[in-house]
Design a binder for these strands. Structure first.
Lengths: 199, 199, 199, 199
DNA sequence: TATGAATGAGAGTTCATTCAT
DNA sequence: CATGAATGAACTCTCATTCAT
């Protein structure tokens, strides 16, 4: 009996992950409204009925996915922040490099969050979480910029605006890279991205 | 007596514009899949039947809208390019300023094209047109960068990559500004945006 | 004024005929349900709005058409019946020949009445009229058959059944001929059609 | 545990048949254009959604039905042809008797094919199949007539034309019988139908 | 846990019909 | 008399979701 239970739990976890991964692919390509549950289930190699064992609804699945990705990103930002060695500029560079690397490794996460952000059809709770992430992101960068300005490494100016500008640029790069078929944008290095902020 | 032909043509033109404007609002907020024809018609103050009098289908309406916006943007780029006075850097600055101004004045056009770009549900012809625009845009900027490099005003490096980087940044800014509720990004001036490319 | 009035009346009559002729073509090819008013109007070379000046509705137009054709056929049957010279067999032959000729000259009338008969979507009044025609037709033939049997020219048997059989055959021939592309049925002569009834 | 595959297959087969039978009734009475999917689904005792689970569209359902009926008829003709005992006249009589019986037992099949034939709204592929059936039918009868003529049992004349004439008559009878409310045509026996071809 | 048959709300679309001009 | 812009009832079809097995 306990063997059976443990087995079941393992299966549950695996299937959940399986479905989430499939959902990520489909939502990334289509967005919430245009994605179909049958397509997600097919991509996961399960019946569409099964998706409803694990997730209440399409929206809930989307929410779970976005939440998962937001947590991952937030965790990453925190970790990057904890590596405190080096000058502020070096830390800023590490942070940007980490972001550029993340978007290259998980372009689908970028797309899903973009869809979540850009469609009013996105449920409010999801957008709310996204806003929180954006704020955290901005705060962290702002903090680094302030420190960099004190150290004379970063150009003068409203740190929040500079942070927002930097964040926007990175987001834009993420989009261009993900739709890289269009322009053959090679991933720029952190130095280029940060060049505009150098004192 | 039938209505005068000129009168009819005027009505047709006006309603078409009317519906296109309404469609822009709705598609900008929701994207193609999540937008409803009834909503668009209601926003235009007409019956949904009339929308079909002027456009074959929702997709065709979307395509007409994207086409319209792409043409507008392309025309703008060409015009900006024709003002040839000043150094390359000055011209680059004018171009970027014009883009920043455009996205501020017509944020919905930005959103519509973004939706068109990011959803695979977008009909291929439409995406194709978007790619063409992106290429034109990139070529023009590339050209200015090359001239700037010759004049020693722009940092050295692959001009196409620099252009793509600049374009991406601007696109990212456009998105952030349009979803300005999130971060209070004030529109950065062209000088800041271009700072990273200064020799 | 009177000149103007007469002129108007002439136009009215001509347009009515014009629209009826166009409707015949379209209804013949499509049937009531699948025919579109815009198509009929286009075939008549008028605006679709004009069709509603002359006919209350699509159904009414269809009814008027069927009525027109039924009247024509009935008149024809009566006239054929009034030519009383010759033996019953000769008169039967003349009647059948007249029918065969009619279906050859106005295949569309055959199709319209067939559509009227075969779709339950046909308004009841129209079907009623059609039944009346069928009965008249049957009565007339029955009468001729009775006379023919008395004269020893027609095979023995229930005259109504024989008449129905003859009528059915002719109807079948009409259909085959009209869809003549399929089988290249040449119009059979009255002698062949009647051969089965010969004493 | 998922439902056993065999069970599912059985359900699928039964429902498909169920819906086809219901569709036959409705299409027979109304034709393709006037028939509504909700009506067909209701007649089958299922939701309209389910009809789309089994058939892509109304047209596809109609096509499947016509195809089914055409196959049945063709098979019947082939089988009737294989009973080779008796003189040509006897075999012709058997064939006609079989046709008369068929139309009496399955009047709806007659109506469906008639609708398929008479409306230009019918998809071309479907009409094509119908033409093939008509040709097969005609060939078979033609062959029997040729043999009958050789045996001196059938009247002289172009066998194809005689066959077409016979086929048309039978089709006409089918229509009259199916719309039997109009004329009370009792089903004629094969002898009467063939009397016109007797040598 | 897993499947897919079954349902029906809701969206897109068509087209008869009205009516201002 | 004539036109075609405008309306909305009615249909077709999609797809999220439920549930028997």
């Amino acid at each position: 009996m306990p063997r059976r239970q443990a087995e079941n739990e393992r299966i549950r976890d695996e299937q959940r992950q399986n479905i989430l991964r499939a959902a990520e692919k489909v939502f990334a390509r289509k967005g919430l409204a245009a994605a179909k549950m049958t397509e997600i289930a097919a991509a996961a190699g399960v019946s569409y009925g099964l998706a409803y064992h694990y997730f209440e609804s399409k929206e809930e699945l989307f929410a779970a996915l976005v939440e998962h990705e937001i947590r991952g990103t937030m965790r990453g930002i925190q970790e990057a922040l904890e590596e405190r060695h080096g000058t502020p500029w070096e830390r800023l560079t590490r942070m940007v490099a980490w972001m550029l690397q993340g978007m290259q490794e998980q372009p689908e996460a970028v797309l899903v969050t973009l869809h979540a952000l850009t469609s009013e059809a996105t449920p409010p709770e999801i957008r709310q979480r996204f806003y929180e992430l954006a704020h955290l992101n901005n705060e962290v960068i702002t903090q680094l910029i302030i420190e960099g300005q004190k150290a004379g490494e970063v150009v003068q100016g409203d740190p929040e605006q500079l942070a927002a500008f930097l964040g926007s640029s990175i987001q834009g790069i993420a989009i261009s890279m993900t739709y890289g078929g269009v322009l053959s944008l090679k991933i720029p290095d952190a130095a280029l991205v940060l060049r505009g902020l150098k004192a």
